[in-house]
């Protein structure tokens, strides 16, 4: 076990865990930040997506020891009160079915739009292809990403 100081959602948290513990489980089991979801555990589905210095990252395969000083943002810290443009667009388009994948989808979309604020539909499809939605809300996801891109 070792102590790690993590910068998460603008605050510093100290956790005492094994080096190889994935950031996902540090968030969920040790810090109570359960908005970041577990689904495949092997970087295939995107349910666990967080931002590391603003980049979309699969937290299920990110050992806590590799995080260092990076700024971690989770769905809980994406905005003050759910008012990030992507969250707003998600609500407006009414994207979710079961909703389980959606935190990861939102985090991926937010990082993508930060890089590319005026994407084509094809670029949206490419970017969002890394997240699986078992309920098949893909049409709504692309609509919401496009809406978020148009709004501010």
């Amino acid at each position: 076990m070792a102590n790690f100081n993590l910068k998460i959602n603008g605050k510093t948290h100290t956790v005492d865990v094994e080096d190889d513990t994935p950031l996902l489980w540090v968030l969920r089991d040790h810090l109570g930040l359960v908005g970041t979801k577990f689904s495949c555990g092997i970087a295939q589905c995107g349910a666990c997506t967080v931002h590391l210095n603003g980049n979309s990252t699969f937290s299920c395969v990110t050992p806590v020891s590799s995080v260092g000083n990076a700024e971690v943002t989770t769905i809980e810290g994406l905005s003050e009160d759910g008012n990030h443009p992507v969250q707003k667009a998600w609500a407006e388009v009414d994207v979710a079915q079961c909703g389980y994948c959606q935190a990861g989808q939102i985090m991926n979309a937010a990082a993508f739009l930060n890089e590319n604020s005026n994407p084509t539909m094809e670029e949206i499809d490419n970017a969002m292809n890394r997240n699986i939605c078992r309920c098949g809300t893909y049409h709504k996801i692309r609509e919401a990403v496009a809406l978020a891109a148009k709004t501010k």
């Binding site: 109570g32 759910g82 979710a96």
Partner: peptide, 22 residues
């Protein structure tokens, strides 16, 4: 077209699924 009553919780990462129960 009434919107999903759990939207806010889902899109802000509130605990609501079984796996979120601690």
């Amino acid at each position: 077209p009434v919107k999903n009553v759990d939207s806010k919780e889902m899109y802000t990462g509130q605990p609501m699924y079984g796996l979120d129960f601690y």
